[in-house]
């Protein structure tokens, strides 16, 4: 049995988790900074970094308590190394390095995108690569292929906005609050996507683009002007959501056909979207097994980082062989540098 401590601070969620054997979540505590950034209408990197530093201590205690373990029981520390907000990442990596030195534990850096994909492994105990994943969040709309643990190939991505970013911007145009994604999801449930349809972006190959769709929504709102009713807003939210979701799934469908993969994963913050979850089932059904992490593992969290770290770390061979004693050499992943 190996225990991994995960640390995630790449954006506006601070999280610490303990995961057993890369599969079983023993604890996963998450602090969302939504309230901190609400008034700014978006994440303020400096405030986020400061908050990570202030939250990590109590989250660490809570994660160890909830998992009912002591630091000495740990085998590995995994921390998000990127992509993300540089200043925020530094806090997680720095604290991770300090803990690794204090406890003489190996420390590994984890790609955040891989983390989202590994969230699916926490949800489906027998899920193994090869798999095909759609990682959708505020920062990503990526189609990834994972032929084996620790190998990722991005086979499709967005040319401009990420899907979550598009949702946030559309929500802002529709006068919804921050964060926009969940608000747009709720409003769309009361609308009809066919009443005021928006174009569905479609590029060659496996690329995405959402900026044209955003402009289309802007013009539609401008045309309606003062006559815009509540129902119009709901209909437009539904139409926007429909276009984004169908565009995402069209490429996932193409990629599934091309790769013949038996395992499909839809993950990342946007995978919490109601329509995307429903339509993913319909599109993937019968072609491959679909795994979507539960909602609390879709948004940024440290359990997925621990899972990814455990399964992909170049230090995997060091697990269980830490020298012991405080402030002795800990093995640190050489890619973890600032």
């Amino acid at each position: 049995m190996a225990l991994t401590l995960g640390i995630e601070t790449s954006c506006d969620e601070t999280s610490v988790a303990v995961v057993q054997d890369g599969r079983k979540v023993l604890s996963n505590v998450i602090h969302s900074q939504v309230d901190l950034h609400k008034d700014f209408g978006g994440v303020v990197p400096e405030l986020a970094a400061r908050d990570h530093l202030e939250r990590l201590p109590s989250l660490l205690d809570l994660a160890l308590d909830n998992a009912n373990i002591k630091p000495s029981d740990l085998d590995l520390i995994a921390v998000t190394r990127g992509p993300g907000l540089a200043g925020c990442l530094l806090v997680g990596v720095g604290v991770g390095e300090g803990l690794a030195a204090a406890w003489s534990k190996p420390l590994t850096g984890v790609n955040h995108l891989w983390g989202h994909t590994y969230a699916a492994m926490l949800a489906q105990p027998d899920l193994q690569p090869p798999l095909l994943g759609l990682v959708v969040s505020g920062a990503h709309s990526d189609l990834v292929r994972m032929p084996e643990h620790g190998r990722f190939e991005v086979i499709g991505r967005t040319r401009d906005d990420a899907a979550g970013e598009a949702f946030d911007k559309a929500a802002r145009m529709l006068g919804l609050g921050y964060p926009g994604g969940p608000a747009l999801d709720r409003l769309a449930r009361t609308g009809d996507p066919k009443r005021r349809p928006l174009p569905r972006p479609s590029l060659e190959g496996l690329e995405y683009s959402f900026s044209g769709l955003k402009t289309a929504l802007l013009y539609r709102l401008r045309d309606l002007g003062g006559s815009l009713t509540e129902q119009d807003r709901a209909d437009l939210a539904a139409a926007f959501e429909h276009s984004v979701v169908e565009s995402l799934l069209e490429k996932l469908d193409q990629a599934l056909t091309a790769s013949q993969s038996q395992e499909g994963v839809v993950c990342g913050g946007v995978a919490a979207n109601t329509l995307l979850r429903k339509r993913s089932e319909e599109v993937v059904a019968g072609r491959a097994r679909l795994t979507m992490p539960p909602l609390d593992l879709c948004t940024d969290n440290a359990a997925m980082i621990a899972a990814a770290g455990y399964s992909t770390s170049p230090l995997a061979g060091e697990v269980g062989r830490s020298p012991g004693g405080a402030f002795r050499p800990a093995v640190v992943d050489p890619s973890l540098s600032w």
Partner: peptide
């Protein structure tokens, strides 16, 4: 400096918490 400051402070915090 934003970057430098965070590197030292977060490392020091991790070390202190760990020990």
């Amino acid at each position: 400096s934003f970057t430098g400051l965070r590197v030292g402070v977060s490392f020091g915090l991790g070390l202190a918490m760990g020990l």
